[in-house]
């Protein structure tokens, strides 16, 4: 038993020293580096994309990112959860649209364009909606499942990601967090 204790203690001591050393190396390494990598999870830079909106305008996330916080909301017309969330997104757009860009992204490769257009008019959605016809944007953001909502701060870093229906209270909290980050 004494040998086992010594081996385990040795492993713990070596691991602690190793991780402390690696942490120090990491800090030195990060001093000369710029921002995080692009990846669709919180803490990483939001992957850039360009696409057409339903109004036939072009949209580039890279341009929107530097100005203010961005909320990307992935939806389809057949998804009942999206129906429920869209009302909250529209309300947030009316309330906070000046300070944060709320962008809907129709996962068009999983939907019919005519039904997506009907969904927008039926729900009176006034925020910008994008057509992701070949699914390249959805693929980069690991969608489906829908709805999926990604919150991006002014620096382009993802702060929060929610899969599933979103209430207005949750949306409001995350938008306010984005705006507080801008003020500080």
């Amino acid at each position: 038993m004494l040998v086992v204790k010594r081996v385990v203690f040795g492993l713990m001591a070596v691991s602690a020293v190793l991780f402390l050393w690696m942490g120090q190396e990491q800090q030195l390494f990060e001093e000369g580096r710029e921002g995080p990598l692009s990846y669709a999870q919180p803490g990483h830079d939001a992957p850039d994309f360009e696409a057409q909106t339903f109004d036939d305008q072009s949209f580039a996330l890279a341009e929107a990112k530097g100005e203010k916080g961005v909320v990307l909301y992935f939806w389809t017309s057949w998804c009942p959860y999206c129906q429920a969330s869209s009302e909250a997104i529209e309300k947030a757009h009316q309330e906070y649209g000046d300070g944060v860009a709320l962008i809907g992204i129709n996962a068009s490769h999983q939907d019919r364009l005519s039904e997506a257009e009907q969904f927008i008019s039926r729900n009176s959605l006034t925020f910008t909606n994008i057509i992701d016809e070949n699914g390249s944007v959805s693929e980069r953001y690991y969608v489906p499942p829908v709805p999926a909502t990604v919150f991006i701060n002014k620096d382009g870093v993802i702060t929060y990601r929610k899969t599933g229906a979103l209430t207005y209270a949750e949306l409001e909290r995350e938008i306010q967090a984005l705006r507080q980050g801008e003020d500080s």
Partner: peptide, 8 residues
């Protein structure tokens, strides 16, 4: 009740 869960 079916659609929503979780949150802040």
């Amino acid at each position: 009740i079916i659609y929503f869960s979780g949150g802040p």
